[in-house]
Amino acid sequence: MRDSIDRSKAAFQSEEALMKLLFQAQDHITNKWNKTVFNWNKTLAQLMIIFGDCLKLNL
């Protein structure tokens, strides 16, 4: 994963290229995650306050 981060420091060809890289990084992290997220409700509430207009959740 570190190699892909180093190679990604160059300018992105498009917004779609950036979004693909972010999705791949998130997917890589999610696949390795095996811990409980403590206080997730509090965290989510704060995220909704700060980023409510652009945070879309399907709960």
Score class of each variant (00 low, 15 high):
residue 1 M to F: 12
residue 2 R to W: 15
residue 3 D to H: 10
residue 3 D to Q: 08
residue 3 D to P: 12
residue 3 D to E: 10
residue 4 S to R: 15
residue 4 S to H: 11
residue 4 S to L: 14
residue 4 S to I: 13
residue 5 I to F: 04
residue 5 I to Y: 04
residue 5 I to T: 06
residue 5 I to L: 07
residue 6 D to G: 06
residue 7 R to A: 15
residue 7 R to I: 08
residue 8 S to R: 02
residue 8 S to W: 04
residue 8 S to M: 07
residue 8 S to C: 09
residue 9 K to Y: 12
residue 9 K to N: 06
residue 9 K to T: 00
residue 9 K to Q: 08
residue 10 A to Y: 05
residue 10 A to L: 14
residue 12 F to C: 00
residue 12 F to A: 07
residue 13 Q to G: 15
residue 15 E to C: 01
residue 15 E to W: 08
residue 15 E to F: 03
residue 15 E to H: 04
residue 16 E to R: 06
residue 17 A to S: 00
residue 17 A to E: 01
residue 17 A to H: 04
residue 18 L to A: 06
residue 18 L to F: 02
residue 18 L to M: 06
residue 18 L to V: 07
residue 19 M to H: 14
residue 19 M to I: 05
residue 19 M to F: 05
residue 20 K to E: 08
residue 21 L to T: 01
residue 22 L to M: 08
residue 23 F to W: 13
residue 24 Q to W: 02
residue 24 Q to S: 07
residue 24 Q to C: 07
residue 25 A to D: 01
residue 25 A to W: 03
residue 25 A to E: 03
residue 26 Q to Y: 12
residue 26 Q to F: 12
residue 26 Q to P: 03
residue 27 D to G: 02
residue 27 D to Q: 09
residue 28 H to A: 11
residue 28 H to Y: 14
residue 28 H to T: 09
residue 28 H to L: 12
residue 29 I to A: 05
residue 30 T to F: 12
residue 30 T to I: 11
residue 30 T to M: 08
residue 31 N to L: 13
residue 31 N to M: 12
residue 31 N to W: 10
residue 33 W to R: 03
residue 33 W to F: 09
residue 33 W to M: 05
residue 33 W to K: 03
residue 33 W to D: 06
residue 34 N to R: 08
residue 34 N to Q: 07
residue 34 N to V: 01
residue 34 N to K: 08
residue 35 K to H: 10
residue 35 K to Y: 01
residue 36 T to N: 14
residue 37 V to K: 09
residue 37 V to S: 01
residue 38 F to S: 15
residue 39 N to R: 02
residue 39 N to E: 03
residue 39 N to V: 03
residue 39 N to Y: 05
residue 40 W to K: 12
residue 40 W to V: 03
residue 40 W to E: 13
residue 40 W to A: 10
residue 41 N to D: 15
residue 41 N to G: 02
residue 41 N to Q: 14
residue 43 T to E: 11
residue 43 T to D: 11
residue 43 T to L: 06
residue 44 L to H: 08
residue 44 L to N: 01
residue 45 A to F: 00
residue 45 A to T: 10
residue 45 A to R: 14
residue 45 A to S: 09
residue 46 Q to N: 11
residue 46 Q to D: 07
residue 47 L to H: 13
residue 47 L to D: 13
residue 48 M to V: 10
residue 49 I to E: 15
residue 49 I to N: 15
residue 51 F to E: 13
residue 52 G to Y: 02
residue 52 G to F: 01
residue 53 D to F: 00
residue 54 C to D: 14
residue 54 C to P: 02
residue 54 C to S: 10
residue 54 C to K: 15
residue 55 L to K: 09
residue 55 L to A: 04
residue 56 K to I: 13
residue 56 K to V: 12
residue 57 L to T: 06
residue 57 L to W: 05
residue 58 N to K: 14
residue 59 L to Q: 15
